[in-house]
Design a protein around this nucleic acid. Sequence first.
DNA 1: CTGAAAGCGCTTACAG
DNA 2: CTGAAAGCGCTTACAG
Lengths: 346, 346
Amino acid sequence: MAQKVKLSTIADALGLSTATVSLALRDSPLVADVTREAIKEKARALGYIYNRRAASLRTSRSGIVGVCVHDVMNPFYGEILKAIEDELDRRRQTFLLCNHYDDLAKQRSFVDTLLQLGADGLILSPALGTSVDELSMAEENGLPVTLIARSLEGSGVSAFRGDDRYGMGLVVDHLASLGHRSIAYIGGTDATSTGRDREAGWVEALARVGIRPRPEWRIEGPRDRHSGFDAVRRFLAIPERPTAIACFSDLVALGVMYGLARSGIRPGADVAVSGYDDIDEAAIAMPPLTTVANGQSEVGRRAADALLARLAGQPSDGRVVLIRPELKIRSSSTGAASAAGGRPSP
Amino acid sequence: MAQKVKLSTIADALGLSTATVSLALRDSPLVADVTREAIKEKARALGYIYNRRAASLRTSRSGIVGVCVHDVMNPFYGEILKAIEDELDRRRQTFLLCNHYDDLAKQRSFVDTLLQLGADGLILSPALGTSVDELSMAEENGLPVTLIARSLEGSGVSAFRGDDRYGMGLVVDHLASLGHRSIAYIGGTDATSTGRDREAGWVEALARVGIRPRPEWRIEGPRDRHSGFDAVRRFLAIPERPTAIACFSDLVALGVMYGLARSGIRPGADVAVSGYDDIDEAAIAMPPLTTVANGQSEVGRRAADALLARLAGQPSDGRVVLIRPELKIRSSSTGAASAAGGRPSP
DNA sequence: CTGAAAGCGCTTACAG
DNA sequence: CTGAAAGCGCTTACAG
């Protein structure tokens, strides 16, 4: 490449100062229209590339927002991320993505990187075991944080997530209304707020309809399709096998359905199955999956808005916002042959 | 937050110069051991945060590598990305992720951002319609590029991808060996090298076994699960319906299988179905999916290595490296009830 | 409306 | 082994 083109290259070429060029390129009204156009034209002609490092060093604003979640490949996060991406794109922020895979060291190293780059903010779904100190450290160093999907008690940081307790309650009420009196619950861990709340929703709803859950109904752990598939073996080993399975997530449920089918058990017809999240695949799965729409895009949009508001100078209100979820009844629970409707069956 | 801690804060506190502090923190052998330890200790105590913008402005090395693909949520890219991430992590490079969704403007804006940030390199799966100029522009401005998954003829840029033509040939040979004489091909577009090569593989393999493909066997377009599902309607409308379907990707095949099942047609038993990519889900799907393992992690690892080699000063060799794929036979094609093995059936 | 000058926080020759 | 000084390419008061 030729000699690097910078502000002074343009300034010299036009007999102007770098100050004027800088202002013109950022559309300052201080610069005369003719001057501005001449400058922009010259910048284009010379192939000028704005040096954000230099600008950011001077202004201490980088235009970078970090986003860190467990795993971007998980469609649950995917839908949140799309919403965040749209919002940040519109505000011309660069969005730096990272998976932490629930590894605290990886999350910490990402936060360090953001601090070093002078990032403007962080949208985080905290890794298991994240301490409140971690977040205060970031905040104290000028990196505002907004949480998504998982909240962190006592952190004083705003969080946006679905009302998991209420949502799982909807599922269990629905299964009970179909006549099920033994409802297993597969997946998730009590190390996350999501895991705790969904499990609490299951327990509480069972209590409401007068069912006492047996310990063996609870199969903890699975959080993806593959481990859902594997969990079927444990489910089939339960004495007096439950007639319904509520799953921690759609991914787990889809794995469970594969696993049941593999064992010759028809999900929907032989065992009712439900998921959680209403990912795109739920509606076309075989059978179509009863689940809970979790407001992922609302979570993403509102979290991005909240962070951008803080960047604009507003203080954090530190509230945990629970998005109200919605039950989607499909044939994996009702056993109806077709996708539509929810005709009860025993 | 208190006054910002910088090199000079540490230098002043210890009665040293910033030069010494800078060298010590980067473990230069020029600094005496005692001095170095005292400096590191002080840095820790003061909560010093390295300012990468300043450093990078000075050195014109940013430690940032951009990675841009169609969609990180697609598990096909996911596996490549994991490999790239591992590799870059080990080399302490920050990895900036972006989806272009085959939108040229979005891709261009990402490349601009990288140039502005002074990124060290770019790993790209080029959006549909990417021109050779786009890449030369990046290269000329000091941003080395390595391509993954899709190559770009005449760009002179190194690319790593599976041998799609050969791989799709394996699939068709396999289906033909099972006795199928009418094999539809669903999904993909000839706007990408991947799409063109897989389709060519299908055409050529059919020719090898003496089958002339009918135009209606080719259903172009679908590239994800949902559009695969939707394509089944078109498939069912084909007169003299084919007995086998080769799909562009696993995602398409999984959608097709959902769609067939929804119409009461048993994939594997009534129609043979194959995918491509061997994503994690393929082995547990119902029925388990015959597919082609595509070497995603090898693609990712080798692309990252190639880019890092260029950053270390090696010139680009501009070669397109084709990773040899491997056929995985499962019951979606053979119709066998269980996952294992590949017993031929008519 | 435009220009001269300082400074953001590092690193790098160079000198000692 | 350590220090003084210049400079990376911007932006921002300040002056005119």
